[in-house]
Design a protein around this nucleic acid. Structure first.
Lengths: 127, 127
DNA sequence: ACTTGTCAACGAAGAGTTTCGTAGATGGCG
DNA sequence: CGCCATCTACGAAACTCTTCGTTGACAAGT
């Protein structure tokens, strides 16, 4: 279990829900998911079972309705996905990726300020 | 041909080669690809055929050895992929994505300066 | 006990991706 | 012409992802 493969689209959607709700039964997770994209109950169940096998979520079986929890923090998932994209499509250039991100979505002044703060912090470390 | 689905891993690898080499025969593209991940000649051929169907590459059949060219500029692919990732895993927050990108790969001071330049330019536009 | 509702488990189907073996077309060369 | 190398075309197999129908277990109510 060294290299977690990157989560698929459906898996990311489920992780989003689990992180927002905390420990959830299949029923609860499914109801939330079905709001944005209607799908069968057993579909969500199957996804969660697979994700448990993969180690993306942990399962508490002490109750009849099992409880699922996201296993890794959102930060880790995000860092992994970004690093992956960096390698696959940006030749490792973080600067280029940032450029594309900012041109893809017009960021608010607040966001720009936040980013600037990050740059300050990083440059401070380098010195 | 409204919404091009995001390119798969294999497709991205091929687009990388085509953009570096320019118009290429299957043979040439395959030889370059096989260096990093050994695979059969017909595999590359099939990929290029599928990509031609999808419109990711164009094919010049005037010579016996067809010539393939990447159809969309790298910039467009990158913008699309980043926008996609933004939606799927970052709740649309470009600032968060930038943060993760910078913590995922230690960026060089030059890159940081480049990013800072971009921020200046964007803020200038807003005013 | 019987029925009903809720739940996990299982299996399978359909789509998309990736790989490759084989066949068919073409051009050059003896 | 007939042989050989090269290249595309075709089809199928293996794999993953996603979805869902069905089954069986279990608990609560009648």
């Amino acid at each position: 279990m060294l290299e977690p493969p990157r989560p698929t689209d459906a898996e990311l959607a489920i992780l989003r829900v689990l992180r927002r709700r905390g420990a959830s039964t299949v029923k609860d997770a499914h109801e939330e998911l079905a709001r944005s994209s209607p799908t069968g109950y057993t579909t969500t169940l199957k996804q969660l079972q697979i994700m448990a096998e993969k180690g993306l979520v942990t399962r508490n079986e002490s109750q009849r309705a099992h409880l699922y929890v996201a296993r890794c923090p959102e930060e880790q998932t995000q860092t992994q996905l970004v690093g992956d994209l960096l390698d696959r499509a940006f030749d490792g250039s973080a600067a280029r990726l940032v450029q594309r991100a900012l041109s893809s979505r017009p960021a608010s002044p607040e966001e720009l300020a936040e980013i600037r703060q990050w740059l300050d912090q990083l440059e401070g470390e380098t010195k």
